[in-house]
Amino acid sequence: MKIVWLKTLKYTVAKSPRRILGWLHFEWNLLFLDKAKLPRPDVIVVSSLSLFTILNGLLLRRKYKCRLVFEVRDIWPLTIIEEGGFNKDNIFVRALSFLEKTAYKRADVIIGTMPNLAEHVKKETGLDRPVFCIPMGVSEDHLSETKPLADDYQSTFFSKPKFRIVHAGTIGITNALEPFFQAAEALKDHSDIEFLMVGDGALKPHFQKVYGHLPNLVFAPKVSRDRVQSVLVNADILYFSVYPSKVWDYGQSLNKVIDYMLAGKPIVASYSGYPSMINEADCGVYVPAGDVDSLVACILDMKSKSPGDRNDMGMRGRRWLLEERNYPKLAKGYMDAIFERRH
């Protein structure tokens, strides 16, 4: 496989004008790239972001008379309207909306990581378009790459016999972690239950200030990527959450969920969107996003189950993940989709 790198304007902050300028810089470089020495393609794949690339994709399809695939990893501009506070009438948002609709209407195939993307495409275009879900995948190699925790980390955070609810990841504005801390507060008199927050982020100091006094709440430092599984296997429940948002109406394929399922532990998720993965594998429970009472009730219900029942639940997730989301299976699905293979 030949890879051509196009250097573009660097940026350090995701929400910055330089990021947008970087997108435009990429399109300019791609437009004027000398393509004479490149092999003739069978398929052009435009992977968002950036949405601007659909324009170059349409030109390349016309040039090479080949198929054009539009790959959706984040639904824009819906994401920045719902979670970034942008008004739908903002001129930048309207421009992105035009590009999005153009991509949905004119691509030969649409592939997304979210399982209900077809509903969004129809809502935006009024058309039944060829939409396929090829979600994030996993390999058993991920397990062989796992390193053990340092002895002092293990002894500090996992030596006490507690029923542990663990969240591992960024402690940031978009992570909707308020229910986790509020549930810890509601269960503070349950001395055998511990809430463990593993990671760092912009809101960590705030949560430490507000909830750091709780006797059943522990903050642990982030670990390297190859030690995440070694943290997760020490949990009794793994937790993740999102804010209520129209973005989730079309489903999710989050790396966090993959990590959690791979650990073979039950999952509790504060999530009100289109259900997938956890319900398909029967390896956990969804509770309404932001509903602390439901979360507390779910935690207590999970605790009431036998360790064997919880282990069975968690292992169902791991088996399902390795069977349904392995790379060979996803690669075959991708090839079938882009070349319209039928079985």
Rank of each mutant, 00 (worst) to 15 (best):
I75N: 00
G314V: 06
P130V: 01
G201Y: 08
R310M: 15
S272M: 08
M335A: 15
Y250N: 09
I81E: 07
V218H: 02
L99W: 04
S253H: 12
D249E: 13
S50L: 04
K188G: 05
S159H: 09
R62A: 15
A118G: 06
S47E: 12
L127D: 06
M261E: 03
L51F: 01
K147Y: 01
A186L: 11
R19C: 00
L38F: 04
R318Q: 15
L321D: 06
D152F: 09
K204P: 00
L33G: 07
R62G: 07
A202I: 14
L30W: 03
G199T: 05
E323A: 13
V13R: 10
S144L: 13
M335I: 15
C298M: 09
H213I: 04
Y260T: 07
L51Q: 03
R40S: 11
A297R: 13
F207P: 06
Q154D: 07
H120L: 14
N255L: 14
L78T: 00
E27I: 00
P275M: 04
D108R: 01
D336N: 15
V210S: 06
L322E: 12
F195E: 00
S191I: 15
L187N: 03
H213K: 13
K35S: 04
V228D: 02
G137W: 00
N87Y: 11
W76P: 03
N311L: 15
R61L: 08
P135K: 05
E324R: 14
G251W: 07
